[in-house]
């Protein structure tokens, strides 16, 4: 039988060793992890705007060249910051913590939101980052809108830990491509968002089909999470759309 003193000593040593190993790993690896996360975020933003297959090494220069403005807006649609320099990964808009801002929104406090703009000769592209909750963990993504703030040019989604083969399918092209060409505003210019629906878009009346996409079978809760995410985030930009439009 082990004495209590031994048990305490054992536990204490174990806690110290594990804490030391884990926190030093976290501290030393953090810069590399953050760079990887930033690159991943850029790739996702670029993919939403139609630039696929950007390699890890090129992501930062391509992002800086392709994206022209990094905008921060407040809840009334006023532009607070408009960064056009060439270190966009350090701009305010890129580093806004969306989770905190959306939490502030749910608590009816002031909040700020980021937006990335591409000023092409063929027309502007507005890219909005999304964040919401899936079944097991967060889901997030980017949605690219045309100059009318209504037509969807592209989306990307990703997730932390949705069920493989079911909810996890939201990050596949076959799901994401359905969004291309859909509208987030109705014919009168009111915000209606885009719904992920079960049972086939073609069963809906023709005039609302442009606001619907097909759900992933078996991924109900993740699909609902995607719905809530798109609606909750995009509705916060409506004041901005109205001011600009």
């Amino acid at each position: 039988m082990y004495s209590n003193a031994y048990i305490f000593r054992y536990a204490a040593i174990m806690v110290v060793v594990v804490a030391a190993v884990l926190s030093s790993a976290a501290t030393f690896l953090k810069p590399m992890q953050q760079r990887n996360q930033a690159v991943d975020k850029m790739q996702s933003i670029l993919a939403a705007a139609g630039k696929y297959d950007v390699s890890v090494d090129e992501a930062i220069p391509i992002f800086n060249e392709f994206i022209t403005n990094m905008i921060v807006i407040d809840q009334d649609g006023n532009i607070l910051d408009d960064y056009t320099g060439d270190k966009k990964e350090e701009s305010e808009a890129f580093n806004i913590n969306l989770k905190t801002e959306l939490f502030n929104k749910s608590q009816n406090r002031d909040y700020r939101l980021p937006m990335y703009v591409v000023d092409n000769p063929d027309g502007k592209i507005y890219i909005i980052p999304l964040l919401g909750a899936g079944l097991w963990g967060p889901v997030w993504g980017n949605i690219a809108l045309g100059e009318d703030f209504s037509r969807v040019l592209g989306v990307t989604f990703d997730h932390k830990s949705e069920t493989p083969g079911l909810g996890a399918e939201i990050n596949t092209p076959s799901f994401q491509n359905q969004f291309n060409g859909k509208q987030i505003l109705d014919d009168q210019g009111r915000f209606v968002s885009i719904q992920v629906v079960k049972g086939g878009v073609s069963n809906f009346p023709a005039n609302v089909q442009k606001h619907k996409v097909d759900a992933i079978s078996g991924g109900t809760i993740t699909s609902n999470g995607v719905n809530d995410m798109i609606e909750n985030v995009l509705e916060s930009y409506v004041p901005f759309f109205n001011k600009q439009g």
């Binding site: 790993a25 690896l29 992890q33 990887n36 991943d40 932390k160």
Partner: peptide, 17 residues
């Protein structure tokens, strides 16, 4: 998981689930 996140981010994205 931490090591994968730092060095092979793609693999870690697949595995984080």
């Amino acid at each position: 998981d931490q090591v994968l996140k730092a060095f092979v981010y793609d693999v870690s994205k697949q595995l984080s689930v």
